[in-house]
Structure formats: C-alpha cells, structure tokens
Nucleic acid binder design. Structure first.
Lengths: 244, 244
DNA sequence: CGTAGGCTTGAAAAGCGTCAATAGGAGTGG
DNA sequence: CCACTCCTATTGACGCTTTTCAAGCCTACG
C-alpha cells in the first residue's frame, strides 16, 4: 500500500493527491515532472516567515513542520502540523505574502516548487487542480477542528485530542498507528499547539499517564487505551476526511 | 464599484471570485449560468447539519450565516461567519459528509448549487476553479487567525479582534466600514465565536465601551476610535488578503 | 564532567466560568 | 394603552481552571 518512499521524488505528493481525487497516469506523471529543488532542512529552520513574499510551494518529503502565528504579547500559536507528502506552503505562495510562518519541527527533506509551475499544472490539468483544492478543503476542516479544540475544550481534552489526531494522521502516512508513535514535539510545542502553557501541558500529560491512557517518554508515545484516549479527547476522526 | 446587488442572481459570487483571480467574460458568464435554487431562509435555520450528506453548495445572496461545531460538553464553537457573496458550503459538499453545521444568523437569501455542477464548471474552466481554490485558501487563512485568536489572546483582545475583522469584511462587502456597522450577532453568539462565555463577553464589551473604543446597542456598533480598537484587538488585516 | 535543553514541582495569583437573580425592550394580544 | 411574554443584556458573588514565577531535576551529549 505504501508508495515509493524515496525521499528524492515527489511521489509522496502524488500519493496524497491521488487520495483526494482520481488521477490518471498522465496526471501522476505531470505531478512527478514538476521541477523542484530538493532541500535538506535542520530542526527549527524556517521555510517561510510571516510577511515574507513566498514564491515557492513546499512539499514535505520527510520530517515534520509546523505553521505558527505570533500574537501581540509574543506568545506563539501553532496552527498546523505537517508531515510527509503534505503541501505546506500552497497557502502562503498562492496568496503571495505569507500570513504565518512555517518552520521545521525536526530535520527533514523538502521539495521547493515554483509557484508558477503549480498554477500552470492546475490550469493545464484541472483534475490535479481539483485534487489540490480538495486537499486545501481538508486542511480547512482540520483548522476548524482546531478552533473548536482551543476554543471550547479544557486542557485535558485538548491534549488528548491532539494526540489522537496525530495517531490517525501518522497512520495514514505510514508512520505510526493507534498503539503508538514517535511524537515529534516537546511539551512547549504541544502547549503552543493547544493554546496552553508548557507547565500546564506537563500537568495534563501527567494526568493522562496517571489514568493509564498513555505512556510518554523521550518522544515515544504509547497509547495504552485508545478508546479511553479517544473519549478523553472528544475525538471523532470524521473531520480528517480520510476515507473519501 | 459595487456590482449588481440583485438578490436573485449569482452576481455576488462572480464579484467575490473575480476578486480572487482574473476571470474573463466567458468565465463570468459560466458562473452566472450555473443552475441554482433560490431559497429564502429564516433566522436560525440550518443550511447543513454536522454529519449530513451535503450535495449542494450554498452561496449567500443576503443575510449572514455561521459555521459551528459542538463539542462533547455541548458547548458550541462558531468557526466562521459568512456574508454576501461567500460560498458557505463548498467545504461540506466537496467533502461529502459535513464535518460542521451551517446556520443562518439572520434571515436572508441563498442560492443552492448542485455540487456536480460546481465540479463540472471548475474542470471545464480551470480559471474559475483557480479562483475558487484561492478563495478556499483565504478561508483557511481566516481559520488560522481564529485559532490564534481563541488560543493565545485574552478576552478583551479576542472580542476587539473579531469586531475589527467584521469592520473590514463588511466594508469590502459594502455593508459597513471602520466607523461602524450593523452587528448581526448577540452576545451569546459573540461568545461562541471567541471561545468565551456570554457573561464574560458582556463584561468585555463593557470594558471596551468604558474605554471609549466602541458604542454598541441594539445591534448597531459604532467604532469611536478605530486605531485604539485595532490595537486593542492586535488586528492586522493582512490575513484577510483583501488586496490581492 | 559539565552544560544545555527539556521535564517536573510548588505556591500563589489571575482570569474566566458558573450560578442565579434582575432589568430592559420589542412584539403581541386584549 | 396596558399586561404579558420572550429574548437579550446586566450584575454580583463565588469557585475553579489555568497562568505565572521560580526553582530543581533529569538525561543526552560534547
């Protein structure tokens, strides 16, 4: 089921898009034929910074990245996390000036594709354009769930929800499943993603551990009771639209 | 500048999309030629409910609507507000099963367009597809700002931010400006949009009034000091991508 | 062996939520 | 024109979740 995981081709993107809409062989070939620059990124390195002009789109080939915004008090809110195969910067590049930053969470490889090439491809091959559009709609769905998560859930629920989302998304990227995975974020980053402080995130994780839902140490998360975690996190994967 | 505001044609949609990408006369005509059902909606009426199958997309011709999600505790989070010209249900209809509800905030008219017709149009006229895609990307940008708003800003800042967003969006829809507008939400709805309680929203509004930033009574908001409100709300309209 | 980054802990304060009661205003019907 | 009702706004007192600040502790790694 897992496609070519060669980290030097756009195969992960094809895999992702083919999941969003039906693509024929020519469509796939056209995506693979996109010109791109391969770039090896370090942990913490910025792909785009807020207010910059973005002229390239970025596809994750390996590693993880986050999108974040900084508010007036200097606090940071992580608004999305991206993994293999995801297009992290269509948003910024199509809208020209970046309204948020994108930064590597771990080391990894990315493919930088000129914006104009993406646009050309979508105009020439409307089905590819449709797949990208649908993918953008799914991103939107995740954003909406995150709004609800930080807006209306308490700390414990928020954290559990995030851990559940990770499990499901990592599974479909072939990087984990409901029994556990490698969590690429530290507690401060979890806090920034859930709108909490690092201290409270720590206490919340302890509460989840104490109740036997998870085991988490040195970046390895073990889900001890998936159903309980799912319930604690008010998690319903519908919004991920994984089975289209 | 304002287009035909006839509330029985898709002109508001053309206006909106033409703002997102360049459309020629044929593109515009094709949009206007989309088959649709005109529907007059009452306040509070649902356009789509969470988990329903959505087969139609909905364009707002007049009035306001909200998207919302309900969490396990029964609390509601409003994740978006829509006004004239906006396509409120591409998200749900392209993704087939609705991951959130859409409901009228005020009475108004909407045009229901079969999903397949939208897809057909975007495949036949990639430029129209591109415009819709960009529009979806802007929606995403607004979602991200809302995540930051409810995740990292305090009550006063959140409310002020929302009031600022309204001013700018209403202005571009020709329904108000930075000096004031008709606010189509009550305090409970403001609370649901900002992730606060109605009581605390009330106190927050009073604080903004006391400081001479706004005047708000019976649904009419007057902005007494735009610069101060903007600052109080940590508001920077970049994320609305209004000047493409 | 020392340092740095991340994790953990405690105590106190703050912000926001909860509960419950009151007030105001618009519309309705007598 | 008044009485009634419904919906929304307002207020007060209290409690709880989360934040803040500050210190200490691990563990990986050079």
């Amino acid at each position: 089921m897992q496609p070519d995981t060669n980290s030097s081709t756009l195969e992960p993107l094809v895999h992702k898009l083919a999941y969003r809409a039906e693509l024929n062989a020519e469509d796939r070939a056209a995506i693979l034929a996109l010109p791109f620059t391969l770039k090896t990124m370090e942990r913490g390195q910025y792909i785009v910074r807020e207010r910059e002009l973005a002229t390239q789109s970025c596809v994750m080939l390996s590693g993880y990245s986050i999108r974040s915004k900084v508010v007036a008090t200097g606090d940071r809110q992580i608004v999305a996390i991206h993994m293999k195969g995801e297009c992290v910067d269509l948003q910024n590049s199509l809208l020209k000036v970046a309204d948020h930053s994108v930064q590597m969470l771990t080391p990894g490889k990315v493919a930088l594709i000129p914006r104009d090439e993406i646009i050309r491809l979508t105009l020439e091959r409307p089905r590819v354009g449709h797949a990208m559009w649908v993918d953008t709609l799914v991103d939107g769905s995740i954003f909406r769930e995150w709004i609800a998560n930080v807006g209306r859930r308490d700390a414990r629920t928020r954290v559990a929800h995030l851990l559940c989302e990770f499990a499901v998304r990592l599974k479909s990227a072939g990087l984990g499943d409901e029994t556990g995975y490698e969590l690429p974020m530290n507690q401060e980053q979890l806090a920034d993603a859930t709108g909490l402080t690092a201290v409270h995130t720590n206490r919340t994780l302890q509460s989840l551990r104490r109740d036997g839902l998870i085991k988490l140490s040195s970046g390895i998360l073990k889900v001890l009771d998936w159903e309980a975690l799912r319930e604690a996190g008010d998690f319903d994967e519908l919004y991920l639209h994984h089975k289209v």
